[in-house]
Design a protein around this nucleic acid. Sequence first.
DNA 1: GTCCGAAGTTCGGTATTACAGAACACAAGT
DNA 2: ACTTGTGTTCTGTAATACCGAACTTCGGAC
Lengths: 267, 267
Amino acid sequence: MPNIDLADERYRVQSVARAAALLELVADAGPQGLGVTEMAQGLGVAKSTALSLARTLAAAGLLRGLEVGARYGLGLNLLRLGDLASQQTSIGELGLPVLHELSRSTGMTARLAVNEKGYPIFLERVDGGGPVRFHAPLGQREEPHCTAAGKAILAQMDEADVRRLISEAGMRVHTPKTLSSIEDLLGDLERVRQVGFAIDDEEESEGVFCAGAAFFDHQGRCAGALSVTDLKLDVPLREIQALGLTVREHAERLSMILSGSSRTARR
Amino acid sequence: MPNIDLADERYRVQSVARAAALLELVADAGPQGLGVTEMAQGLGVAKSTALSLARTLAAAGLLRGLEVGARYGLGLNLLRLGDLASQQTSIGELGLPVLHELSRSTGMTARLAVNEKGYPIFLERVDGGGPVRFHAPLGQREEPHCTAAGKAILAQMDEADVRRLISEAGMRVHTPKTLSSIEDLLGDLERVRQVGFAIDDEEESEGVFCAGAAFFDHQGRCAGALSVTDLKLDVPLREIQALGLTVREHAERLSMILSGSSRTARR
DNA sequence: GTCCGAAGTTCGGTATTACAGAACACAAGT
DNA sequence: ACTTGTGTTCTGTAATACCGAACTTCGGAC
């Protein structure tokens, strides 16, 4: 993770930083969890240190002792905190009804991403009714150049910023259709601005397409993007344009909600 | 929180425990976040200590600096970790398709809870299509005596365990219909066992009802419960029985998945 | 059945590190 | 301008987090 600009090296509490690293380590380990020896290796600390950290995190519900052996997995308290985090990011809370409506009217998996320095971070996900379920993780920073939400956000930035961001993020090639030159990307972004939505046509994953559109906060700044995803087989090519318009309409509705209306009724 | 039996007081690392407490504090603070002074008061530490903890957590993405002032809210990394936590709890992962199907076929908000020592903890939620959206938090431990999922789980325990649990958890009265005596509750649980599903008829919230049914893991132990929720106005009384059966059927399907079928295809 | 190895756990000494508190800076309200 | 509340910086000190070595437990392999 290159860019944590808040990361003032001063005032870092070592054991807390290690504990956070341990959470990441366990998250990467998958369902079978980690034992203290593996933790110690992964963190580069003594086994006894890893044990203390794990026990402390477990007492707080951030880790949980797994049935089998003395292994540790992610704790259920993380669920609660994650759920709260999306609610407290008022975009997540306000956008959820729009997202449901988008998913219902298209029958597809719909997602909401916020704009974090040009990268899309997916806050919410509503699955469509179909048999296919996309394993789309929440909270993860996705690549800008090959996702519909990413390109919808990029299209709102000026060219210099796009160039800077891409030079940092790179343009990893995932499929034959992935845009691999900055010029191609800039051309596509121009098209996005004209029609008001972005298309990812098997650029990130073969057989899968997305349509995305940006939404804006009360200051008119690009706050994030909505997108829908489906298998390309299921959707005739000529329908994708109509789909893009639907996503754009919903994004516009969300922009309205975020900008005006102090009817932010709290319950 | 009275019962954290894994909380071995030995091997607790102070700063990590404080950091975890800080996360809870910020979670309770709501969308406007917390400043360092409030943190310091809430934790009972010096301001400088609170600042160090907050900065460290922010560098790890567990907190994030809010735009306005130098206040801190929950970080977006918690989203990712929470999402992973529900996936890694294989019940959540395996149950999600069933949950979608339950929500689709009833048109109602459906939830999946795991059984944690008799308490229901909701892992997954799929909203129904209706205009009403329930503010049902994930990851939270709910009360056993006044929720459909809770009673569905209690009905699988023997009487002595139920009495012990209730004496610990209490029977807080929420509405006029809340069961307030242990005898009434035990009677209801007997009824639950006969029909195979539990009903919460405005016992936790006025105007809202739930139907829930337990599901079982490969050892035949009660692993959790499914439930559906809706406004009572929208559902004729006589339909609730049919609804209970639908929930029970889905719970049985989930039990099948959890018990047999090593077709746990990973993707 | 016994031995080995690798896992988790315990414990105590040491110096690293987290902590408190006081001083500073900055803002907004009176 | 003064006051009162922020958040931030700094430094000394003692508490504490850390390591490492010894111990225990478990499960195969021979």
